[in-house]
């Protein structure tokens, strides 16, 4: 069993993601109670999970970037890039689901007072520029260095932007967590945790699938060189 797991880590991860996503959708629609917020609450479970997953992806990308610079780990460059790519996909999902929520909650598709949405817009622009930077530098150690330094800037930009946006706008985004712990009923919190785990597992699966594809690309290129 354990050797099977070791050899089929990606398949196991995909199965876990599948089970968790199914379970979380079932919990959201059939188990979690509808509170004063109305059905709108049902967007929240996924929206927040997706947003936190995007942060996790950016953080993972930053960690791998640090390893590029610090340990001169050559594989980490590709891993950092793929993690940030996942982060941008989940960031875009956050923007869209958050926008739907804002339309429902406040009647506008875009709400400049909605701190999380503005923050994600800034991060989205930043990481889109990351891809521009990466694609305009020829592949090699130089590109790995430049991408890694820029990814580290992103890690610093997140707290700085949170601070900046909190300073500049009044605060109307509903807060799910405060100093007294989760601000919701137990069954809702459980549903939320399962949704978050589901999104993290989904992101991890997509990350490994993309990474495997990129690695196959590299191996094929090496093979072509060897056969020539």
């Amino acid at each position: 069993m354990s050797t099977w797991l070791r050899n089929n880590r990606l398949a196991a991860l995909a199965a876990l993601a599948f089970a968790l996503v199914t379970a979380s959708i079932a919990l959201v629609f059939f188990y979690a109670p509808v509170d004063a917020d109305g059905l709108n609450q049902k967007i929240f479970y996924f929206h927040v999970g997706v947003a936190l997953t995007a942060y996790a992806c950016f953080g993972w990308g930053g960690w791998k970037a640090l390893r590029v610079l610090w340990k001169r780990d050559e594989d980490a460059d590709l891993e950092s890039y793929v993690a940030i790519h996942q982060g941008v996909i989940f960031g875009a999902l956050t923007l869209v689901t958050g926008s739907i929520w804002a339309r429902y909650r406040w009647g506008h598709w875009w709400e400049w007072h909605e701190n999380q949405l503005v923050l994600f817009l800034v991060l989205f622009l930043f990481y889109a520029a990351y891809f521009m930077l990466r694609f305009s530098v020829p592949a090699g150690p130089r590109r790995a260095n430049l991408s890694a330094v820029y990814a580290l800037f992103g890690v610093a930009l997140v707290p700085v932007s949170i601070l900046a946006i909190r300073l500049s706008e009044r605060f109307i985004h509903p807060v799910a967590f405060d100093r007294n712990g989760p601000n919701m009923a137990g069954s809702q919190f459980f549903t939320f945790c399962v949704s978050l785990a589901a999104m993290l597992a989904l992101a991890a699966t997509l990350y490994h699938v993309e990474l495997a594809g990129k690695r196959i690309d590299v191996r094929l290129r090496e093979l072509r060189e060897a056969l020539r």
Partner: peptide, 27 residues
């Protein structure tokens, strides 16, 4: 309308995951 917004939010996520499958298939 309420239900429509919830459905739309979930549909977006579903569509993005499917788009990912298409991209991986092409690859």
């Amino acid at each position: 309308t309420e239900e429509k917004y919830v459905a739309a939010a979930y549909l977006v996520i579903f569509a993005v995951v499917l788009a990912y499958v298409v991209i991986i298939a092409l690859k």
